[in-house]
Design a binder for these strands. Structure first.
Length: 503
RNA sequence: GCGGGUAUAGUUUAGAGGUAAAACCCCUGCCUUCCAAGCAGGUGUCGUCGGUUCGAUUCCGUCUACCCGCACCA
């Protein structure tokens, strides 16, 4: 058997396999599909559930400092005002009609150029550390081109969102340098709106949550008051989130409805957050490896200070080599006390915590490891997808870790026209089924049945043959990745599977 | 949102202005003592809406979805 590395898994192949085998379907496909939404089929929902279960077990059940939460998707609209999503979770965009380029209005700066109080034109610069100098140079060149004498008045840069309607026609496009080709800024809030109650007026507006994290902050006080938790501790939540993305793309990587697994880990303001941050990064990297992502496919993207959001002290993304490029899987941010302070201010409720150990009162800071379930699933599919050759025949294999494989094992009677073999196989299948999600298949040649399971990532095939009945009761266990076979007793089989799947 | 491309069975493809095909897959039966075997049978298709036409899956337009590039991704 020769192995080919899956160096260039193409997204097309993956999408095709997902659909063909029932992992993922386009949403509403019978009506032509619906951009940005996907459905998880029989195998996909098992895979997804296994990912979430593994995360919950490892991050919540197997730790002493974590508790869980399941908050509502629609929450009081004030939550999103406090969090900044109503104001800030939007990107006003500007298009240049001539060059077809698009800019974020808040990253595009302009200023009227005036000499001795009279405006001779406008200049535009893109956001940059030296934008003031660039603008002044542009203004200078404008003055010379127009042959105007005199000293330039000081330039006052404003971003494009502050432009007056009458100025739109005067501001030059950064691409062409000519005025008049920029559109007015178009506002785009990424939150889905809905209405709560019978009235559909402005007072009834509510939002589908764009992240699960705010549900955690909103319940922080409840959990501190009732949960017998002590800082440092974390609250974990898994749930759907919704963002009205401008351009969903790359299959389930960026969709409008997706599922998050988020932790808010509350720490003392005096704690060594740099070290705790590093510990979380390691914890999360190890976890990805434990569910089957190769360590060498994972990288860290450390955000530079100037790239950080205003509420973050540090942020490191864990990225993965997806078919469409090296992209973010999980963000691990140090958010300080921004969110709790915002909610304290907007709700008027104290978010202070009394620390018994230090006898101090404070609002805790947080470290936020936040990842997408769907992205994790896509990463696992990408990593698992392989094409092998077995005896000259190409086969497609999903080399899932047994922990997350949709089916843990498949049971086959070697032939189906010998009733005792079939009976014995069904009996074993039913025994296994009490414990794991397993599959039974009696149709077709045994080799075909193995290949079918290879393609959906079932790690083990168990075959009942004549020796099982006539000799020692042993069964054949066939390994998906090596295709090697081992005979073992049913008792040995159970302890083998237990070790491989549940450890 | 802009530009380009694509859309025929579950998959990969063929096809012609006049009853739409093949291979593989899938299902059933027979056979089969470990890697997609064989035999017999079977299900299933022109993305949407509109126009031209006696007749459109084919020509034209619309919409939708997908792919590539640009832009975007607190």
């Amino acid at each position: 058997m020769s192995l080919k590395k899956n160096v260039s898994t193409s997204m097309d192949e993956l999408v095709g396999l997902c659909k063909r085998r029932g992992f993922i379907f386009p949403s509403s496909e019978i009506y032509g599909g619906y951009n940005g939404f996907y459905d998880y089929g029989p195998l996909g929902c098992e895979l997804k559930r296994n990912i979430k279960d593994a995360w919950w077990r490892d991050m919540v059940h197997r730790r002493d400092d974590m508790v869980g939460l399941d908050s509502s998707i629609i929450m009081h609209p004030s939550i999103w005002k406090a969090s900044g999503h109503v104001e800030g979770f939007s990107d006003p965009m500007v298009d240049c009609k001539e060059s077809k380029l698009r800019y974020r209005a808040d990253q595009l700066f302009f200023a009227p150029v005036s000499v001795a109080g009279s405006v001779i034109g406008y200049v535009t610069v893109l956001e940059a550390p030296d934008q003031q100098e660039l603008a002044e140079a542009a203004a200078d060149s404008l003055k010379r081109k127009q042959g105007v004498q005199g000293k330039l008045d000081p330039l006052v840069l404003r971003d494009y969102t502050e432009a007056q309607p009458k100025e739109y026609a005067l501001i030059p496009s950064p691409a062409t340098g000519k005025p008049g080709s920029l559109t007015p800024p178009r506002d785009f809030n990424l939150m889905f709106e809905t209405h709560v109650g019978a009235l559909r007026d402005a007072s009834a507006v509510a939002y589908l949550r764009p992240e699960t994290a705010q549900g955690i902050f909103a319940n922080y006080k409840n959990i501190v008051d009732t949960g017998r938790v002590k800082v440092p501790f974390g609250i974990a939540q898994i749930g759907k989130a919704f963002r009205n993305e401008i351009t969903p793309r790359n299959f389930i990587f960026r969709s409008r409805e997706f599922e998050q697994m988020e932790i808010e880990y509350f720490i003392s303001p005096d704690a060594d957050w740099r070290q705790l941050h590093q510990e979380w990064i390691k914890t999360r990297l190890d976890w990805f490896v434990s569910i089957g992502l190769p360590r060498e496919s994972l990288h860290q993207d450390v955000h530079q200070d100037e790239k950080l959001a205003h509420y973050a002290k540090a942020c490191t993304d864990i990225t993965f080599r997806f078919p469409h490029g090296q992209q973010e899987l999980e963000g691990i941010a140090v958010r300080g006390d921004f969110d709790l302070m915002q909610h304290q201010q907007h709700s008027g409720k104290s978010m202070e915590y009394f620390d018994e150990a230090s006898k101090k009162k404070y609002v805790p800071h947080v470290i936020e490891p936040s990842l997408g379930v769907d992205r994790t699933l896509l990463a696992l599919l990408t990593a698992a997808y392989c094409k092998d050759e077995v005896d000259g025949e190409e086969r497609t294999v999903l080399k899932f870790h047994p922990r997350i494989a949709p089916f843990k094992a498949a049971v086959f009677p070697l032939v189906k026209n010998k009733e005792p073999i079939v009976e014995r196989a069904r009996a074993l299948y039913q025994r296994l089924q009490r414990r794991w999600n397993v599959f039974y298949d009696a149709s077709g040649a045994i080799g075909r049945r193995y290949r079918r399971q290879d393609e959906i990532g079932t790690p083990f095939g168990i075959t009942i043959d004549f020796d099982t009945l006539e000799k020692d009761g042993s069964v054949t266990l066939r390994d998906r990745d090596t295709t090697e076979q081992t005979r073992m007793s049913e008792d040995e089989l159970f302890s083998f599977l237990e070790e491989k799947i549940d450890s």
